[in-house]
Amino acid sequence: MQAPNRPNRRFRPTKRVCQFCVERTEIDYKAVDLLSRYVNEFGRMRPRRQTGTCAKHQRHLAREIKRARHIALLPFVSD
């Protein structure tokens, strides 16, 4: 039996790495296939804790998703 102060350490999440930092890819509003991976089925942007992007690239990603929405490359909401 474990001590009452010690939590159970069975689950250990893996460290997520930012895809954009590793691959050095540019985020562009015209790359709809790339941007659609960071938007859920309701048309909302996925948070950093789900995507694993760093704060800097999450800001760039949000800006480019908004640009793509304004010129109708991505939908604002799903049907």
Rank of each mutant, 00 (worst) to 15 (best):
residue 22 V to W: 09
residue 6 R to N: 08
residue 27 I to R: 10
residue 13 P to G: 02
residue 15 K to H: 01
residue 32 V to Q: 12
residue 30 K to N: 11
residue 29 Y to H: 12
residue 35 L to W: 01
residue 16 R to F: 04
residue 18 C to G: 06
residue 9 R to V: 04
residue 20 F to T: 00
residue 31 A to P: 01
residue 33 D to N: 11
residue 19 Q to C: 10
residue 32 V to H: 02
residue 5 N to H: 14
residue 23 E to C: 13
residue 33 D to G: 01
residue 36 S to L: 12
residue 40 N to T: 04
residue 32 V to F: 00
residue 32 V to Y: 01
residue 28 D to K: 05
residue 26 E to H: 05
residue 6 R to P: 00
residue 26 E to G: 07
residue 28 D to P: 05
residue 20 F to N: 00
residue 14 T to C: 06
residue 30 K to L: 05
residue 41 E to I: 08
residue 5 N to A: 12
residue 10 R to Y: 07
residue 9 R to Q: 09
residue 20 F to L: 04
residue 32 V to W: 08
residue 37 R to N: 14
residue 23 E to M: 04
residue 9 R to C: 07
residue 16 R to L: 14
residue 19 Q to W: 04
residue 36 S to H: 05
residue 37 R to S: 04
residue 12 R to T: 11
residue 24 R to V: 02
residue 30 K to F: 10
residue 31 A to Q: 12
residue 38 Y to N: 00
residue 21 C to E: 08
residue 19 Q to M: 11
residue 32 V to T: 15
residue 10 R to G: 01
residue 26 E to C: 01
residue 35 L to H: 01
residue 33 D to H: 02
residue 36 S to I: 07
residue 13 P to D: 07
residue 37 R to P: 00
residue 17 V to Y: 15
residue 41 E to C: 01
residue 13 P to S: 03
residue 11 F to I: 11
residue 37 R to Q: 15
residue 8 N to Y: 10
residue 29 Y to V: 03
residue 24 R to D: 10
residue 24 R to H: 02
residue 18 C to A: 05
residue 14 T to D: 11
residue 36 S to E: 11
residue 9 R to N: 09
residue 39 V to R: 06
residue 19 Q to P: 07
residue 42 F to Q: 12
residue 29 Y to A: 10
residue 33 D to S: 14
residue 12 R to C: 04
residue 16 R to E: 08
residue 13 P to M: 03
residue 10 R to P: 01
residue 40 N to I: 03
residue 36 S to G: 10
residue 32 V to E: 13
residue 25 T to K: 15
residue 40 N to F: 07
residue 29 Y to G: 01
residue 22 V to H: 09
residue 28 D to G: 10
residue 25 T to R: 15
residue 18 C to S: 11
residue 12 R to D: 05
residue 34 L to E: 09
